[in-house]
Structure formats: structure tokens, C-alpha cells
């Protein structure tokens, strides 16, 4: 018995030794240092402050592609609805901003950190505040789940994120790594997010609208309206390219919502307030 244990110990020691020799012979010093560096830095994370800085740059880029609708009452109304929705969420203290873009396209965009855009082309197809709330809440959900931040992180080199971390420590203002990531983030709107992210934003959006006291069926009502548009219309091209099919989104919302949100069906859609703001849209005060 004793002899067996000694033999085993010897065997282990000798193989261990052999392995060590083998490793030493093949040692690639650069690789070891690189690996150690990666372990030291940990997985690349994007902080909330970096997320907001990225969002500001992306928002500014979107405003370079399409101007703001020049209408203060409408812009303030969008912010009132959007900010009230954001208060119902797990990130109520982000710098939430909402804006209508002067563009005939039918679309809406969320930039990291709480910058939300909706086009005039989409707004004019809505019929109530609950519909507006449903669309804004879908975009808010993208920000809550950091869908764009994650998509940006996945589509760039890890070193760019670590460069961003260094940059954030070294300087204030927009450095080269941040500029680079803002560019990646802006181009993302031409490609779109994962379908799963869009379905998740739909599911969360209807709940956020319900939490804010609205009829939760505003979002599906808008999707139904868009389904009634001519699908070959150019104003729909980018939205169709970057989102799952309307029929799939409606199917999933139908199944997810029925039963679960019945008790909120009596909540108001505030179509009179929506109509009143839109009717006075030309008065400019």
C-alpha cells in the first residue's frame, strides 16, 4: 500500500516535471504577457457615463442626417409623454431627451443614454397619446436594456473599448476611441439590432405604457396602421429593413398581451389631448 502511494507520487512528480520542461521549451513570452494583460483588464465594459457620452455623439449625428421639426409645442409634448414614461422604468435618472425629426420616413430611433427620436412621418400616422407612448416606450426599452451599447461592443475590437476606458480617465471631451465608437453606433441604424432585441422592446414597451397609465394597445395599434401602408413605399424602406416583419411583431404581441394586460384596457388613450396638440401645431407658441 505504502509502496503504491510512493510510486504514484513519483509518477506524478515526473510527469509534472516533464510538462514543465515542455512548457518552458515552447514558451512564447509575448503571448503570456498579452494573456496576462487581458486577465488584468477583465472583460471590456462600457460604463453609464461612457454610454451617455456615446449617445450624445450618436444623437448629434442623427440630427446631422435629419433636422429637428421646428415646432416647440410638439417637441415639448413629446418630451412630456416620454419623460413620464421614463419615470416608470428602472433607469429614471438618465438624461432622457425626446425629439421629432423633420423627415417623411416612418421610423423611430433610440440612442444610448436616453436620446429618443421619432420621425414626423411616423407621428402623423398616429391617432392618440397612447399610440405615441407605445412607440416611445419601445425605444425607451432599447435604452433600458442597452441594446445599442451591446451591439456596438460586439461589433468592435475589444481594444477599442479598453482605449475608451483609458481615454475616459485621461481627458474630458471626445477622444479618438469615443469618436470611433460613435461612428459605429450611428451606422448601426442602417443595419438594425437583432430581431430578439426588437421583440423584447415590444414586450417591454407595452408594459411601460401600461405602467404610465395608458391604454397598453397603443403600440400594436401603430403597427397595425403601418401594416396598412403600401409596403413598397420608400418611407418604410429602412424601418422594414431593420425590424422584424410587422405581422410577426403583431402576432407575438397578441399572444404575449392577451390575458396579461386585460385589467389595463380601460386606461385612457388621451386621443383628445393628442389631437389638440397636433391641431395647434401651426400656432408656434
Amino acid at each position: 500500500m505504502k509502496a503504491k502511494i510512493i510510486l504514484l507520487a513519483l509518477t506524478l512528480a515526473s510527469t509534472g516535471c516533464a510538462n514543465q520542461n515542455f512548457d518552458m521549451a515552447n514558451l512564447n513570452l509575448d503571448k503570456v504577457v498579452e494573456t496576462a494583460g487581458k486577465v488584468y483588464k477583465g472583460p471590456a465594459q462600457i460604463t453609464e457615463a461612457q454610454e451617455i457620452a456615446m449617445g450624445e455623439g450618436i444623437a448629434s449625428n442623427l440630427l446631422g442626417a435629419a433636422p429637428l421639426l421646428d415646432n416647440k409645442p410638439v417637441q415639448q409634448y413629446i418630451n412630456q409623454v416620454g419623460r413620464w414614461l421614463s419615470v416608470q422604468t428602472e433607469r429614471p435618472d438618465l438624461p432622457w431627451h425626446f425629439a421629432v425629426l423633420e423627415d417623411e420616413d416612418v421610423n423611430a430611433f433610440a440612442a444610448p443614454g436616453g436620446y429618443i427620436f421619432i420621425t414626423k412621418g411616423l407621428l402623423i400616422r398616429m391617432k392618440s397619446e397612447a399610440e405615441l407612448a407605445g412607440v416611445l416606450a419601445h425605444e425607451i426599452a432599447h435604452v433600458l436594456k442597452r441594446h445599442h451599447v451591446e451591439a456596438i461592443r460586439k461589433s468592435t475590437r475589444t481594444t477599442l473599448i479598453t482605449d475608451l476606458a483609458k481615454e475616459s480617465l485621461q481627458q474630458s471631451g471626445v477622444g479618438p476611441a469615443l469618436t470611433n465608437l460613435i461612428g459605429v453606433g450611428t451606422e448601426l441604424y442602417a443595419r438594425g439590432l437583432d430581431k430578439g432585441d426588437e421583440y423584447e422592446a415590444d414586450r417591454m414597451g407595452v408594459v411601460i405604457a401600461a405602467r404610465a397609465g395608458y391604454d397598453p394597445y397603443g403600440l400594436p395599434a401603430v403597427l397595425l396602421t403601418l401594416q396598412g401602408m403600401n409596403p413598397t413605399h420608400s418611407s418604410l424602406a429602412l424601418m422594414f429593413k431593420t425590424h422584424p416583419a410587422l405581422s410577426d411583431r403583431l402576432d407575438l404581441l397578441d399572444r404575449t398581451m392577451s390575458g396579461a394586460l386585460d385589467r389595463f384596457e380601460m386606461q385612457p388613450d388621451l386621443s383628445p389631448r393628442f389631437t389638440s396638440v397636433m391641431n395647434n401645431a401651426g400656432s408656434g407658441n
Binding site: 446631422g64 442626417a65 416647440k72 412630456q80 438624461p95 431627451h97 425626446f98 436620446y115 442602417a190
Partner: peptide
């Protein structure tokens, strides 16, 4: 979207609408 440039002026106007 691929060729856009930042519009800091419009961004500043957007900030004024915040609630």
C-alpha cells in the same frame, strides 16, 4: 446615415426641450 456629420447646434436645441 453612413455619411452624416454631427450637428451640435441642433443637439443644443434638443436639450432645451427637456422635461
Amino acid at each position: 446615415l453612413k455619411n452624416t456629420k454631427p450637428n451640435p447646434r441642433a443637439f443644443a436645441v434638443m436639450q432645451t426641450y427637456a422635461v
